[in-house]
Design a protein around this nucleic acid. Structure first.
Lengths: 200, 200
DNA sequence: TGCCAAGTAGACTATACAGTCTAACCAGCT
DNA sequence: AGCTGGTTAGACTGTATAGTCTACTTGGCA
């Protein structure tokens, strides 16, 4: 058994990332042995770092959750800002990774309710809140119809992802990224939330 | 072991329904023994009717898929019609059953791609198509903005379900049915797709 | 040199489960 | 009474897996 040895230090880090990838790609079912193999590590080493599979799963998920946020900078024109956000949102949510994380979490939510809640709050909830804050400002300034900004944020994110995410979850198509779609959605949103009497 | 005996005939039917419930509630992992127990049937009987667990799962899913469609009758006013459809859509999609089916299928789609495809086409795809047909008519008659009806249908269904479904999938809240929400969404949709110059 | 911490290989236990097989059971029917 | 077809309980096989234990290696460091 000759192993090409150029393994960087932090065994634990390698392990965590391997676990992340493994759980993402194969779900919770993936065996500890497979994870150990992925990390080029002995099974016992896994148990040296994490007390149980569940604990490892929890750590891996929390680790994966870090990268779920989308920022939006409210400098430019309303449409341009929303377009940039929307593009980034779709790119993240509809990527193979995004779909896989969502699938794994959906499947295991009943067994790990605390994890699910944490994901929900740190991911979608926070994203919606930030978007809502931006929209609230735009509404105050008369750039958008005065309405419930949380509701508006929810509508926009829903329109951006729902059906295409479903396709991804059902393992259909990778042409998820029809490039005109984002603009189409944003314009639809802007129509629904256009200021009531053109200018103040 | 005294069993209260009032078991209706069709063993196979009972079995299928038990499997449906079991897979829905516990996912594919549920053991054949548990399914057999639920159906008040011996394990061997399961194998008398279905060659394997996979086959049983496939049958059960196909059976469950039947009830996923929502009809809409295009007689009344546009808003009233869409409201009725939307209410029905949310009720079905966000019910405990709807969420559970979605969860199980999402989890197993990679392993049963054919099933996933069938579900997608018979469920969401067909619903969207029917809605789109209705919207197309409304567009022709000038009751809605002339636009891509498929896109419009996708937006409406997305707005109706996306975020609340996520809550359900993550095992949060059952107050999914805030009764004003449907109307709020429909009105938002109507704003986005209002006919361009009020009347023809 | 000798110690130590981290890692390793692999045997081992216990459990769960899919799927098979057998022998008995019990209808209804002839 | 005896046959037949669906049903049943339970033993059995084989496999996969979580988690433990032990004896070994190895690199750094005092």
């Amino acid at each position: 058994m000759s192993t090409v040895v150029e393994l960087p230090p932090d065994t634990r880090q390698r392990l965590l990332e391997a676990a992340c990838d493994a759980f993402r790609e194969e779900g919770y079912q993936v065996s500890i042995d497979r994870i150990a193999a992925r990390a080029h590590v002995a099974r016992q080493t896994v148990y040296n770092h994490f007390p149980s599979k569940d604990a490892l799963f929890a750590e891996a998920v929390r680790h994966a959750i870090q990268s779920v946020l989308i920022t939006l900078d409210g400098d430019g024109a309303t449409r341009a800002t929303l377009l940039a956000f929307s593009e980034a949102y779709r790119a993240k949510i509809l990527s193979a990774e995004g779909i896989a994380i969502f699938r794994t979490l959906t499947a295991e939510a009943p067994r790990f309710p605390a994890l699910a809640k944490q994901f929900f709050r740190q991911g979608p909830q926070t994203t919606r809140k930030r978007l809502a804050e931006y929209l609230a400002r735009a509404m105050e300034q008369g750039r958008l119809k005065r309405d419930d900004p949380d509701f508006a944020a929810e509508m926009l994110t829903a329109m951006l992802a729902d059906f295409d995410r479903l396709r991804g979850l059902m393992n259909l198509q990778t042409d998820l990224l029809k490039p005109t779609k984002t603009a189409q959605v944003v314009d639809c949103f802007l129509r629904a939330f256009a200021p009531e009497k053109d200018m103040p």
